[in-house]
Design a binder for these strands. Structure first.
Lengths: 141, 141
DNA sequence: TATTGTTATACTCTATAACTATA
DNA sequence: TATAGTTATAGAGTATAACAATA
């Protein structure tokens, strides 16, 4: 009993991978001229909330290992986009600098354009379903 | 005039990235015990169609650079999962070996379980919209 | 004893540049 | 002169292991 061959174009998982690759490549190109990576901007958005957010907090919110925040925050700090503020002898809150706030505003404008274009590419009858469907795939994965 | 802060959880693009990361991590873990990567299996699925597919063909179908096929196919060849068949002095068709066909069948079973679980996580009212919405994001990107 | 920050390292997927040989 | 295959390298986003210092 041999299984049927799988057609890649019937697999939501494959489409998810292809769509994410295509869209993130596009977003990356839009952010590159500002010297930012996608992960930089997502971190900066979380930092911009104003509340005291540590590197470990960011990692938890983004569901990545906190070790990965070290080079990311070092880059942002070296570019004078964020700075650290000691909360106690162990933890440090991350704040945007003034330059960081300005750069983030530019990045957000770019993201808004990108997101609008992304949604525009989805046929109208599927459009409102995309966000909730995707959220279901990573919320409490 | 300062722009509104963006909330990540309202962005389809962010959800797309998170969902793809979460799902591909899960699929990767399912395939790892078989010694396969996700990209290995997608290539093997395309190879399994039976028609003469070259490394360059695979790259075009997967929308990646053909240089990336070199180490991938070398791994599969070293593992005796595929072999090459000269089409002329320049091009080589890639075929599955018998071992490759058997391993692919196991991988396909794993993928089917994975894809079913993925869809199951999407609320029923959004489920049928996921595949067409994602396809619109990468078809003729 | 759990958590924070860190260093060092490695893996996966993808890209660019440049080359050889063949169609 | 366009295409196939290749080598070498790089970049982005993750991961693991192990450690010191602090809560």
């Amino acid at each position: 009993m041999t299984s049927q061959p799988i057609r890649l174009d019937t697999l939501p998982g494959y489409a998810l991978r292809r769509a994410a690759n295509a869209m993130m490549a596009e977003l990356g190109e839009r952010l590159a001229p500002m010297g930012l990576r996608i992960s930089d901007v997502t971190a900066m958005i979380l930092i911009s909330t104003g509340s005291d957010v540590t590197a470990s907090d960011l990692a938890r919110m983004l569901d990545i290992k906190r070790t990965n925040m070290v080079p990311l925050l070092k880059r942002l700090e070296d570019a004078d986009l964020v700075h650290r503020r000691a909360l106690d002898g162990k933890s440090q809150a991350i704040d945007l600098t003034e330059a960081g706030s300005k750069v983030l505003e530019q990045a957000q404008a770019e993201i808004e354009t990108f997101e609008a274009g992304l949604l525009q590419r989805v046929p109208e009858e599927h459009r409102e379903h995309l966000l909730p469907a995707l959220q279901a795939l990573y919320h409490a994965a």
